[in-house]
């Protein structure tokens, strides 16, 4: 079974991405009927397939995820976010940084609380920034060592900016710390996993 890095740990992945089948599933077969979806309880569908077969996908039950290409903006799925347990953002090459903005917007502006997964050309050295942009699951490219990549989350311990994990920049965390509330550091990944609302208390 494929694995993903989820919240800093290597986990088995039960989601199935419908990628190669998209053309087949988008159009009626020879019998004139739209084909059935695979039986997996957890499916990730490309945005185009979601648009084409929305009702069928909702009817089928099971957990549903959508995959956004870099040019698919977060805004395009805002109205549908409630239907998705997972949003996968695709990085066709790791240097395409559009997905970082998509992640932040989904988390910070549109309040998506499901799994936000980076897929495609996802590499060790981008994990920390992706994490800070709200991604919590990473389908690491197969030739990268997932075990070694877990270290990526701890390479830098503190940041100046606010991010999807903690919206406060260092200068606000500092003020909070001086008031005796909290540590100035943004903390390691494992510490920062606490949802924001709890951290504020």
């Amino acid at each position: 079974m494929a694995t993903v890095i989820r919240e800093g740990r290597i986990a088995n992945d039960s989601w199935r991405l419908l990628d190669a089948e998209i053309a087949r599933l988008s159009y009626p077969a020879e019998d004139g009927l739209l084909p059935d979806f695979p039986a997996n309880p957890e499916l990730i569908v490309p945005l185009a397939l979601w648009r084409r077969r929305r009702e069928d996908l909702l009817e089928r039950g099971g957990r549903l995820g959508v995959r956004l290409a870099p040019e698919d903006t977060a805004e395009t799925i805002v109205a549908d976010l409630g239907h998705f347990d997972l949003v996968a953002v695709e990085f066709p090459v790791f240097t395409d940084g559009r997905g970082y903005s998509t992640g932040r917007l989904l988390r910070e502006r549109f309040g998506f609380r499901g799994e936000l997964r980076a897929v495609g050309d996802v590499l060790h050295d981008q994990l920390l920034a992706l994490y800070r942009c709200g991604f919590d699951a990473f389908a690491l490219r197969e030739d990268h060592d997932a075990e070694a990549a877990r270290a990526a989350f701890h390479e830098i311990s503190s940041f100046y900016q606010g991010d999807a994990r903690d919206s406060r920049p260092l200068f606000r965390r500092r003020v909070a710390a001086e008031q005796g509330a909290l540590s100035v550091r943004s903390g390691t990944a494992s510490e920062r996993r606490v949802p924001r609302c709890e951290q504020r208390e």
């Binding site: 395409d96 940084g97 970082y100 903005s101 920034a129 900016q161 999807a164 920049p169």
Partner: peptide, 14 residues
Amino acid sequence: RQWSTFHPEFAHLP
């Protein structure tokens, strides 16, 4: 400088 250093969203601009 501080705002831009390791800005998570803007490490892979066009």
